[in-house]
Computed example of a mutant assay.
Amino acid sequence: MYERLCHAIARDAEVVALLETVPEPKRQPNLLLGVVRLLGGPVDDPGAFHDFTVANWAAVQTELRRRATQTNEAGRCALLLPVLAALPQPLALLEVGASAGLGLYPDRYRYRYNGGDVIGEDGPVLDCTLTGTAPPQRLPEVVWRAGIDLNPLDVTDPADVAWLEALIWPEHQHRRDRLRAAAAVAAADPPVLRRGDLVDDLPGLAAQAPGGATVVVFHTSVLYQVPSARRLAFADVVRRLTGHWIAVEGADVLPYGRIPDEPDDTLHNVLALDGRPLAWTRAHGQAMTWFG
Rank of each mutant, 00 (worst) to 15 (best):
L241I: 07
F218A: 10
T242Q: 15
V215D: 02
A229Q: 13
G250N: 11
T220M: 05
A247Q: 12
T220D: 07
P203K: 02
T220V: 15
H219A: 09
L198E: 05
R239V: 09
D236S: 13
L223R: 02
G212C: 05
H219S: 12
L202F: 03
A251P: 14
A247T: 15
Q208A: 13
G243M: 06
A235E: 13
A207F: 04
A213T: 09
Y224S: 14
L241N: 08
L198H: 02
A247P: 09
T220R: 02
L205R: 04
T220L: 07
G204M: 05
D200P: 03
G196S: 11
P203G: 04
V226D: 00
Q225G: 09
L205W: 01
Y224I: 11
S221N: 14
G204D: 13
P227L: 01
P203D: 06
H219F: 08
A247G: 14
P210S: 08
V222R: 04
V216L: 07
V217T: 08
I246P: 04
D236W: 00
V215M: 12
T214H: 10
D236Y: 00
G204N: 08
H219R: 08
V222Q: 05
G250Q: 09
V216P: 02
S228N: 02
L223Y: 01
F234H: 15
R231V: 12
G212K: 05
Q208K: 11
W245T: 13
R230P: 11
G204P: 05
L232C: 00
H244Y: 08
D252F: 00
Q225W: 09
G211M: 00
H219Q: 14
F234W: 13
D252S: 14
P203S: 04
H219I: 08
A233V: 07
D252W: 00
V216A: 05
V238A: 11
R231M: 06
A247C: 12
D197S: 08
V238W: 01
A209H: 01
F218I: 10
L202N: 02
V199P: 06
L232T: 13
